[in-house]
């Protein structure tokens, strides 16, 4: 066999393995989808029914009545959007100062902030909880919104790295023109680092949307829960009644927004992770 032929055969083998892998990756999600449109009798059929004969979409109607799903989505949106919009602004402003402005001890302050990355949330959650409890914020969305809007050190870190490569001349010229520093930020810096901000924004939005530990600590009332807590409660409540189609339908609703965002922005997201993941 020639070398080229051997190579081709090997590539076919690799391709097959990757396809099997892809099936393994996607099968549980497809099965989730298939369960959600099954009739109850099909769910417990042996041998299993992979594709139900009749697609029963009634569960997708039922879920809105079965639990506070809609308010869950609303709460998650309120939290994720306010955190990422305000937080991206404060973070990029700080990144600009850390990268381009002169300030005594600024690197020391930056290192101090970076040390936050070494402290895991579980080590801070108990005192944070008692702080918010003492001002009566438990069972409101505020403890989930307020701390992160002050800025995200991971985002500051990446934007700062990004900005350091921007030549100083651009900014010096504006300084001499007498533009205010905030003006420089809005008119020169933001347009320059827009792609980096956007990528970080999306990743952060996903992280907040998918968060579970912080919400479960603070939220109790059904109308205050985030979407993740709502589906966890669906799971606990309806598993006893073995209503798996209902649970799966609700979980798909919780998954869908991030899936759509990912598929739309997959190029940017994948690129940004491939770059930033290594540097982080």
């Amino acid at each position: 066999m020639t070398e080229a032929k051997k190579n081709k055969l090997f590539n076919i083998l690799i391709f097959t393995i990757l396809c099997i892998g892809a099936v393994v990756m996607i099968a549980p999600l497809l099965w989730m989808l298939s369960t959600s449109v099954k009739e109850k009798s099909d769910v417990f059929a042996l041998p299993p029914v992979w594709i139900p004969e009749v697609f029963d979409f009634s569960k997708y109607k039922e879920i809105w009545e079965a639990g506070p799903l809609l308010s869950g989505i609303k709460n998650s949106l309120i939290i994720s959007l306010s955190v990422t919009i305000v937080g991206s602004f404060t973070s990029s402003l700080a990144a600009f100062a850390f990268a381009k402005l002169r300030l005594k001890n600024k690197n020391m302050i930056f290192l101090l902030l970076l040390s936050a990355m070494m402290i895991p949330y579980p080590s801070l959650m108990i005192p944070q909880f008692s702080m918010f409890a003492s001002i009566g914020w438990v069972d409101t969305l505020l403890p989930l919104i307020i701390p992160p809007i002050f800025g995200n050190i991971v985002m500051v870190f990446f934007l700062r790295q990004y900005l350091i490569n921007v030549p100083n001349a651009v900014i010096e010229a504006a300084k001499i023109d007498g533009t205010s520093f905030f003006g420089i930020f809005i008119r020169i810096i933001v347009p320059l680092i827009k792609p980096a901000i956007a990528a970080q924004f999306i990743l952060w939005f996903m992280a907040v949307w998918n968060d579970y530990l912080a919400p479960i600590i603070y939220l109790n009332s059904p109308d205050k829960l985030t979407i993740q807590l709502v589906i966890a409660n669906f799971n606990a409540t309806y598993a006893i009644q073995t209503d798996y189609p209902l649970i799966m339908a609700a979980s798909i609703i919780a998954l869908l927004p991030m899936l759509v965002i990912f598929l739309v922005f997959q190029k940017q997201i994948i690129e940004s992770i491939a770059i930033s993941g290594v540097k982080g």
């Binding site: 990756m25 996607i26 999600l29 993740q228 966890a232 991030m258 899936l259 990912f262 994948i270």
Partner: peptide, 20 residues
């Protein structure tokens, strides 16, 4: 993209799915 889908999926929903 396919291999990355579980990464972006909500951990809560994934846990519900895998429990089932």
């Amino acid at each position: 993209v396919i291999y990355y889908i579980p990464v972006v999926s909500s951990l809560a929903a994934i846990s519900v799915l895998w429990q089932w």
